[in-house]
Design a binder for these strands. Structure first.
Lengths: 228, 228
DNA sequence: GTCTATAACCGGATAGAC
DNA sequence: GTCTATCCGGTTATAGAC
């Protein structure tokens, strides 16, 4: 059980860490400095956070919350699929921009299969689901027909695609991230085209192959719950 | 300039590190232990390797060499595209299997945009090119027609695809990595089908969109050399 | 110049008293 | 829940040997 005071202390530590990360970057921020700014002892900081990387995680969650909020504005107003998708992507890029400097570290951590930040493992199922849901919303609000067989897979695919864009952004040092924005726009086009194309009955065999692939990935991504 | 004795010392350090990594894993291996097993002082190890992660890099390079060798046997014998591609993928999976336990760390490091292991940045251009060349070979030796416009992009795409398979493998804890092998086979199928499909003149507009995307990525992947 | 060793530093993490 | 004291291991400074 955690007390009121505990919550406050924890919040102070997060704030201190986030401030320092933004000021100097992650590596240059010591746990000693975080503790000092939060007004607690170093040891106490470890009472609330198992390690330094867990503070990074706090950062990550905040970004996701901010994105959900920013994307909602787009989803509430746009009705065209292309506009909705691009709007959601752009709001993502906007939200993460301040952290470009060290989000490489986030990715780095996220790449470790054992990391709680890794989008592919079970621990982060909730966060992943939130992300996927967002793209389900993107599709729902759009006036477009989607073949029933691929429909359930599409949000997950789009979410994966959005991670690809973020990966590109990570390496993008162009002025104002123009390259990433250009890529988002072009690929958005492509995605919409492919979705429309997939309805074509001539492509049914290809769609079936693709579906089989998706299903075998799915098993690993969302293991079927073992019944009692 | 480095002397003969220097080379030998360096090799001893790599061997010591690689042995220890395999025995206990990366995190559990201390630089002190590596130095001791190599019969050098801890400080001396740092004369040869800027840091612990550079020893990991040695591991990585060895894996790549092994893969090139293993793949060659496939490329020399098979002529069918599907068989060639699947053969190369399987040889990759075979080579990396002993390191499954900690290759997550490799990926983790590779995900950092500044890391020399990151396949997308300039420092690793050479290693990337080697990988891409392998898939160029896969295509060359196969009896198949490829539309001229996408031909130059295909090896790079296939290399990227192979990294996707490795990423999946990383998270695969199934018996004998059956899931990854199943995925490789299925996606291999799919890739071959898509390549054939892309030749269809009806898909020209889609291909054009895709090409534009590929070109904007390319700029970042291989920046055009500035002329003098 | 190339190589090697010793000693120290620094910061993340932990133990244990209060 | 909070602190102090300590550990541990990656890294660096530096001095000297070949």
């Amino acid at each position: 059980m955690t007390t009121r005071k505990g919550e406050e202390t924890k919040a102070r530590i997060v704030e201190a860490a986030l401030d320092l990360f933004r000021e100097r970057g992650y590596e240059e921020t010591t746990m000693r400095a975080v503790a000092e700014r939060a007004g607690v002892s170093q040891g106490n900081a470890y009472y609330y956070f198992k390690g330094k990387e867990y503070l990074l995680q706090a950062y990550y969650h905040r970004m996701q919350e901010d994105h959900i909020e920013a994307a909602q504005r787009v989803l509430d107003t746009e009705t065209d699929l292309h506009a909705r998708l691009l709007g959601v992507l752009n709001s993502k890029l906007e939200v993460i921009e301040p952290y470009h400097r060290f989000s490489g570290l986030l990715f780095r951590q996220a790449a470790d299969p054992k990391s709680p930040l890794n989008p592919f493992n079970d621990q982060s199922a909730e966060a992943r689901q939130e992300g996927i849901n967002m793209y389900a919303q993107v599709l729902e609000g759009a006036k477009i027909k989607i073949p029933a067989d691929i429909a359930p897979h599409l949000p997950g695919l789009m979410w994966t695609y959005s991670m690809g864009i973020v990966l590109f952004w990570l390496h993008d040092d162009s002025e104002g991230r123009q390259r990433t924005h250009a890529l988002a726009e072009q690929t958005c086009d492509l995605v919409v085209k492919v979705i429309k194309l997939l309805s074509n009955p001539l492509l049914r065999p290809l769609r079936k192959s693709a579906l089989r692939v998706l299903e075998s990935i799915q098993v690993q991504l969302k293991p079927t719950p073992t019944d009692p």
